[in-house]
Structure formats: structure tokens, C-alpha cells
Amino acid sequence: MNKPLIATTSLAGCFGCHMSIMDLDDRILQLIELIEFNKSPINDIKTLSKECDIGIIEGGCANSDNIRLLKEFRKNCRVLIAVGECAIMGGLPAMRNNSASISECLQEAYIDCVSVQANDEGLIPNDEELPMLLDQVYPCHEIVKIDYFIPGCAPRADLIWDVLTALISGKKMELSYECFKFD
């Protein structure tokens, strides 16, 4: 039997969840025995080259490119897992949802903020190449169907291990209390 194919990506996240995958330490070697990675920042493969068994999404949707990528993952992955607070509820980027409009955010980030340097003309980037910011940051499951959620900020490596090995081997998830956290 071929090894299950896994693809991972980070949308509006901080790569902390991917760091948590790295935090599996030597179990990463066991994982490589069990699965094969397709597109992922871990192996630096940039595109989804075939249909995958498991897709892992870190981060919520803050811009049009996040939506495009999330939909591409949904289309090409049999099981899609939202990993971490940002993927599940928008996380820290979603703090703008209830407090500031996009124009206020851009004004602060590029013009008003005390740490802004060398922007005397007060430019706000708006090149066509740049993804459009969405009106708010959306949790992944409000855009596409998500099959499983792994909470945490970042999720404990033990929890990721628990979920992945359960999924691959068909055994029951343990979800031990000490690993199950939202922070």
C-alpha cells in the first residue's frame, strides 16, 4: 500500500503550528516512515502536485489568496484538518474583525504607526499582484468544510501526533487533557 500523502500550508498564521509539527522531534522520522509529504513548507514543495489524503491548514483566511489556497486544498485533499486557533477561529489576526475597518488597519500599519519609516509619501500598497484583504478574517470552516480540528496556539506536538497517528492507523484519538489547550 502506498503511504498516505500529506500536504500542509499556512494561511493567515505565524507558522507556529508548523513549528509545532517540527516539535515532534525524533518522531518526525517515524512520521516519515508512515506518510509522505506533498506540498508543505517543511519540504519546501510549492505546489500540490497530486491528490492528497490529508491536508493540514494553519491560519485563517485574511485575504483572497488564503481563500484560493484553502479551496484548492479542499478540492485536492480527502481529509482536511484545521490546526490551531487561527484556522479554527481566526486567532489574533481576527482581532481586527470587531475593532477596526480595513482602511483603519492599513492607515495604522503603513502611515500612523510609530514604527513606520521611509514612507514620507504616505503610500498604502495596492498593486494588482497583491492579494485583496477580506472585510474580516474568517475561520477556515466558515469557508470550506473542515473534517477535523486540532486546537492550540500552537497545538501541542503530542496532540498533533495523537491525531495524525490515529487518522493513519484508524485507532481512536486519545485527546489527553494536558495536551488539549486553546493557548
Binding site: 481576527a94 482581532m95 470587531n98 496556539c153 486553546f182 493557548d183
Partner: peptide, 8 residues
């Protein structure tokens, strides 16, 4: 409400 656990 707005419960951002990681920042609380």
C-alpha cells in the same frame, strides 16, 4: 463574545 484565548 470575542474570546481570543491565546491573548487573554
Amino acid at each position: 463574545g470575542n474570546h481570543f484565548c491565546p491573548a487573554c
